[in-house]
Amino acid sequence: MPASTHPSLSLGPVLYLWDGPKWRDFYFRIADEAPVEHVTLGEAVCSKRLHFIEPHVAEVIERLEGAGKKVSLASLALVTLERESQLVRGLVRDSVHPIEANDLSALGLLAGKPHSVGPLINVYNGATARLLASRGATSICLPPELPMASVRDIARDAPDVVFEIFGFGRVPLAISARCAHARSKGLVKDNCQFICGEDSDGLIVDTLDRQPFLALNGVQTMSHTCQSLLQELGELTAAGIGRIRLSPQDCDMVMAARIYDDVATGRCSPAEGLGRLTLAYPGVPLSNGFHHGQTGASWIAAPAGSPPWR
């Protein structure tokens, strides 16, 4: 398969709260070393966290663009306060970079301008994808819970849109106006002391029978497992998927990106890639159940005897 037909890699926004220098250094390394073409950055989860990254955004964008990466800015996923509405309006008005809409307000304000649609906007069918495209969406990252059957159908139905699939990372499963993370440490959202910053890779929620189940990330609830669609890159490519999104975890993301790149370009088999991935992000089980229309937390191994995709 010619190299140009495989999907490119894109890096989603850091969903966790990392302190400014850690956040900056992460992107500097991505700029210098990671084989990703697109980078979407910005605070998508909680408007209270914005000031941590704001001082570093300009230098990070400069470094990424200097390295030839295409940069987009993520809008907030949950907008309820006037202050948050103003933030989104300001972003849409002032940004010289393309914006990824993560809620309906950004989607509305971006009408007529080229933009991306993030994975937290509900695109479950081709009709919705076409509607968003007619309003200016050029790329859409589909919701992580979508099964492959839907992905294939949507991609076929809206050929002018570049589709992106959530290929690596803990899955953002839910978002609330209430902060379970602060609550778990005896605090409330309005006086949270940015306690979620203590858990740079999420705070694990176990069941009462000691099964790791979910991970708290401020007002967002994520999966405990890390979704990985390495085995599925072949069918995603065949379905015309243009980009694979890697969602930053607090692990060696440069290595994770190289693994995806190696598998996508055929330099390494999916099985070998998965082996390497468990070293890059140790201790976190992988899942791909959503893609196969199963329980999201489950892992569906490639059928024995099926040829590794090259």
Partner: peptide
């Protein structure tokens, strides 16, 4: 609903069946 409605995949994560789908 504790979570923002229409934006929750907790159920499908555990069971494969979701409110949205």
């Amino acid at each position: 609903c504790v979570m923002a409605e229409g934006r929750c995949s907790l159920s499908s994560y555990a069971t494969g069946k979701s409110p949205n789908m």
